[in-house]
């Protein structure tokens, strides 16, 4: 009986510790809220704190907003040539207690990534952008990687370690 219970527990944990999700949605601003809520819901099995959820939501919101307003701006209408019909790809993965989030667009890309990541640098001051997007992602996540080429799209890769799983393991 005991071993059976143990195996069950093991299986339960395995299903919990390896999980993957892929989403693609239209590059329109209403989907910013959808994307961050989807990621927040995806991490709930890891039992995150309210603080962690908020951090993740903010970072995802920044990345998706960037893809929508900078990746596919008016000058660059993307592959479909039509505003709002471009796709933003969201890929989430849970490995052990680490959440990996990838936000990808096929938009106009970034020529100078270091400059783009500087706090307060923005290419769209006319739109009231604060230029804090990448700074927020860096502040709220543990790891941030940006891969981009002009006219080849942008991939933002973020990682965050969630705190509670290791404690649960210790108790067992």
């Amino acid at each position: 009986m005991e071993t059976e219970q143990k195996i069950k527990n093991e299986m339960k944990r395995n299903t919990l510790l390896e999980n993957e999700m892929r989403l693609s949605f239209d590059a329109v601003s209403v989907n910013e809220a959808f994307a961050r809520v989807a990621v927040a819901a995806f991490v709930t099995p890891l039992n995150p704190t309210v603080e962690e959820i908020s951090d993740i939501k903010t970072a995802v919101s920044e990345a998706v907003t960037n893809a929508i307003i900078h990746g596919y701006d008016e000058e660059f209408l993307g592959a479909t040539g039509q505003k709002g019909k471009n796709q933003v790809y969201l890929h989430c993965k849970i490995v052990e207690d680490v959440l990996h989030v990838e936000v990808q667009d096929t938009g106009k890309g970034i020529a100078d990534i270091d400059q783009a990541m500087e706090p307060l640098f923005t290419t769209r001051p006319d739109m009231d952008r604060s230029g804090m997007g990448f700074a927020f992602m860096e502040a709220f996540m543990d790891d941030l990687e940006v891969i981009s080429e002009p006219f080849q799209g942008t991939l933002v890769r973020m990682k965050k370690k969630l705190g509670t799983i290791s404690w649960i393991k210790q108790e067992e």
């Binding site: 961050r36 908020s54 939501k57 903010t58 919101s61 920044e62 907003t65 739109m127 009231d128 952008r129 604060s130 230029g131 804090m132 997007g133 700074a135 927020f136």
Partner: peptide, 13 residues
């Protein structure tokens, strides 16, 4: 309950 850098942009603007 939630604000990202867009809110900062509104205030600065």
């Amino acid at each position: 309950r939630f604000m990202d850098s867009s809110g900062i942009g509104v205030i600065i603007g």
